[in-house]
């Protein structure tokens, strides 16, 4: 295959995986819609076991559609998960062919479009790998719709044709630095989702405690608050050392070789440092001051906001001022033809 054929393949694979993600979103929405009609198991800790464990074991026989619904829920859940696996595979093809499309062949991490393509894939892979361990069926609709929307924005706003890597990017540190940064970003994103769900559920629970009603539907089926809190903590604790490595070890070493200084307070560096400090505060608060639940979740979301701002914002708002501005449209085609 030629390079331009690979580029075409990559574009088509992105479109195809977006379609499959969309179907997965539909399946998961159907799953939780079916779940609304089923009474949630009381005191049944959600999430002990394999796929579709959100299914209640004891459905009330008085409801109108009680027999079919749990099965339907499980079926839709399985369909959604299988579609996500297929989509992740196609997503991987899109990334790989993007690298093969360049002449010379390179890693697909040259610009924002490619970073986002890889970042979303890491989020999906993280979700799939942890699916069994933490029984993440409740996270499916959030992850799939997040990835779908992000991919759409990526294609609509950030798309850049394949070009070779710039000289500054031609370094083994590109692989080390970017892989670590994207992995940490994926972990923080997953953790942030759990923290956001924590806040939503906590609010919902307070409301229901106040009026004495019991809720149904998606929120009722989320894991108990301490479980959400613990999963969020573990994901962040996994991401933080990787972020430390990416931003404070691999980054500075590469910056030394490429730009002649290991730390120069470039806007991207400043914000990576801010993100690091906020997540350090999150872990510190949990470890020593016993901040759990609400306040910890808020800090985690602040950290996620600084992370995403650094990823997107710096390149757009500080484009010319940052040495990291790989998104700023590099005026590559400078050959003008005269009339």
């Amino acid at each position: 295959m030629t390079h331009s054929q690979f580029e075409l393949l990559s574009n088509q694979a992105v479109a195809a995986c977006a379609v499959v993600y969309f179907l997965a979103v539909l399946a998961h929405f159907a799953q939780w819609a079916a779940g609304r009609k089923v009474e949630e198991p009381v005191e049944q800790p959600v999430g002990v076991g394999a796929a579709g464990s959100g299914t209640p074991l004891a459905a009330t026989p008085t409801g109108p559609t009680t027999i079919d619904e749990p099965e339907r829920m499980e079926l839709f859940g399985r369909v959604g998960l299988s579609l996500t696996v297929v989509a992740a595979f196609v997503h991987f093809i899109a990334m790989a062919s993007r690298g093969l499309a360049s002449d010379p062949v390179r890693v697909p991490w040259g610009n924002m479009y490619e970073f986002t393509l890889t970042g979303t894939w890491v989020v999906v892979m993280g979700y799939l790998l942890l699916y069994r361990r933490y029984s993440l069926s409740w996270l499916s609709p959030v992850v799939t719709s997040f990835v779908l929307v992000t991919l759409m924005i990526d294609v609509l706003v950030l798309y850049t044709p394949v070009v070779p890597l710039r000289d500054a990017l031609q370094s083994p540190w590109l692989i080390i630095h970017v892989v670590a940064a994207i992995t940490a970003t994926g972990a923080f994103t997953l953790g942030g989702m759990c923290s956001a769900l924590y806040l939503v559920k906590e609010r919902w629970q307070r409301k229901h405690e106040a009026d004495g009603s019991t809720g149904r539907g998606y929120l009722a089926r989320l894991p108990e608050l301490p479980v959400l809190d613990r999963i969020a903590y573990r994901t962040h604790a996994f991401g933080f050392p990787i972020w430390t490595f990416a931003a404070l070890i691999a980054g500075p070493i590469w910056a030394h070789y490429a730009w002649g200084r290991y730390w120069g307070w470039d806007p991207k560096e400043v914000w990576a440092f801010i993100t690091w400090v906020v997540y350090a505060a999150y872990l510190h608060a949990r470890a020593t001051s016993g901040w759990k639940g609400r306040s910890a979740a808020v800090v985690a979301l602040v950290g996620l906001a600084t992370l995403w701002f650094n990823f997107v914002g710096i390149n757009f708002f500080f484009g010319s001022g940052s040495q990291h501005s790989y998104a700023a449209p590099e005026p590559v085609a400078v050959v003008r033809t005269l009339e």
């Binding site: 307070w265 806007p267 400043v270 914000w271 440092f273 801010i274 400090v277 906020v278 350090a280 505060a281 510190h284 600084t306 710096i314 500080f318």
Partner: peptide, 13 residues
Amino acid sequence: LFMLALAAIPGSV
């Protein structure tokens, strides 16, 4: 720690 994060912002603007 939070103040350090906040104080770093102006330098990027």
